[in-house]
Amino acid sequence: MKQVYKRDLERLWQTISEHFELYLPLEQDGKVNFMPWKQGENVNIDRLKTDLSPKNIIFPPTETYLKFRTVNKRLCFESVGGKNDKYVVFGMRPCDAASYSILDKVFLQEPIDRFYEERRTNGIIISLACSEPEETCFCSSFGIAADNPVLGTDIAAWDIGESILWQPKSEKGKKLTGILDNILQDTSEHEIIALERLQQSIREKLAQLPWVDLDLEIISNNMKEMFESKVWEELSKSCLGCGVCTFVCPTCHCFDIQDFGAERNGERFRCWDSCMYSDFTRMAHGNPRKTQTERFRQRFMHKLVYFLNNNGVYACVGCGRCVEKCPVNMNIVKVIKKLGGD
């Protein structure tokens, strides 16, 4: 276990950025999001969660992955996706780091998505435990420990006031720790006690949260029965069909593929898409999900049933962003409660 004093943080970031691209939670116009850092930026590591999830780092909102051109009637394709730069993300919360391990199940499954793989391999994630979990947090329902970053984490970190404790969890994490040897300090008994105290306090706060008892087990695992449930119509009535829940969600990963350009020269990109949108499944000869009720159902069935069946985990980490951002206060917590025969 190492530590970095808060007065040394700027120096730490500076050193990291000499070797890597560095992403930090930056505050701009009142919103905090992970963005590439340079000196003088307004870093905010106290805000519990960023407004948008950091999934954009490994799964960009738009990624041009193919360039095409026609020369003498001959078509040429060039693969241009992925990212070679090595980077570090500092201050990601355990739920968001865990979401990376969920996205891995989609993109690193055969056939492996090489662009995603490249981004994942090149990144080092420093995950910061949540000293102050919020009332919209329900990560514990998904087995994520806010006091102990593990999933998707290369280095676990804890803010104990004067310093940030630093514990490498992977080979990549150990390497970075080596590079930062002259900034990171050794810890003593004192810090270990402080860490235990912090973790204890986090667990106590988690136990006080309103959704601590949210139980996924209450959801039936009968796919057809769930699909045909009457709750979808009722719950989806107020849904406006925007895509904010899917875009702020760290685990939503549906994408579209489109071409851009002229006949002789252009590119193909993929971009975030949303199952909430009416054109998501629309074909020339019809649409299997004609109404918002069907689209709404798809989103939650995917997260709570389909993804679980296929990958053994739920496609939710309980970050609570959808809870805060839905314009009409509809969210996965309500869906879970309702499905449990509430």
Binding site: P60, P61, T62, L240, G241, C242, G243, V244, D256, Q258, F260, F269, C271, W272, D273, Y277, S278, D279, R282, K325, P327
Partner: peptide, 28 residues
């Protein structure tokens, strides 16, 4: 979200959702 919450964005199919209109690009 801005469009869908807007009480006066009331088109049956928004031009930005209409594939045939050629402006449905979701590119960032």
């Amino acid at each position: 979200a801005c469009r869908n919450i807007c009480p006066l964005c009331s088109c049956e199919t928004c031009v930005f959702d209409n594939i045939a209109a050629g402006v449905s690009s979701k590119a960032d």
